[in-house]
């Protein structure tokens, strides 16, 4: 049986990898290319699974909270790599950009190497996260500008 602290550490590592994989998945292809191209050129790896394009069936819930149903599919591209030291990386990205999936897979593998993790997080993951957040904020502030402020019309006698 694993000790509690070891399990917690494993959980935290999974949550961390899930987070960076998500950032890579939802990135803008050209932004990932600009941030990660050098890293990738300097790495030696082999394709475990060459990039390909496929579908994910997106599901919803009746009423938002009820029984599950199939809404429709979306395109995704994916790829898997193995670095020289055996580290395996997977990339899944929204859309059909195979190059983006390949970059994501390589960056995922590099991020699992303890000695490079922090540097690559700072160089690739955090800038991608910041840009996504900036776009989300801009959209949300534009929506917030269309928020309706109601005021009550006082009719008839002076209420005082």
């Amino acid at each position: 049986m694993k000790s509690k602290t070891k399990m917690e550490a494993e959980q935290a590592a999974i949550a961390q990898r899930s987070d960076w994989l998500g950032i890579l998945s939802r990135s803008v292809g050209s932004e990932l290319e600009a941030l990660a191209a050098d890293l990738v050129t300097d790495s030696t790896f082999e394709w475990l699974r060459p990039s390909d394009i496929g579908l994910v069936m997106v599901r919803g819930r009746a009423g938002g909270t009820g029984n599950v149903f199939n809404l429709g599919e979306m395109t995704v591209a994916r790829a898997s790599v193995r670095l020289e030291d055996g580290t395996v990386g997977h990339g899944y990205v929204q859309g059909r950009d195979k190059r983006q999936a390949e970059l994501a897979a390589i960056v995922d593998a590099l991020l699992q190497q303890p000695h490079r993790h922090e540097l690559i997080t700072a160089k690739v993951i955090e800038p991608l996260r910041e840009r996504a957040e900036a776009r989300r904020l801009a959209k949300s502030r534009k929506a917030a500008a269309t928020k309706v402020e109601f005021f009550t019309m006082v009719r008839g006698e002076d209420p005082a």
Binding site: G54, V56, R59, G60, R61, K139
Partner: peptide
């Protein structure tokens, strides 16, 4: 669509955590 393989099925999307761009109600002001 019929030419593509299916890689996965998603978890149900959580619309209560949507990043809202528009949101109106005709029942409550």
């Amino acid at each position: 669509r019929t030419t593509l393989p299916r890689f996965a099925v998603s978890e149900p999307v959580d619309t209560s955590r949507m990043t809202i761009r528009r949101r109106i109600s005709a029942t409550f002001k």
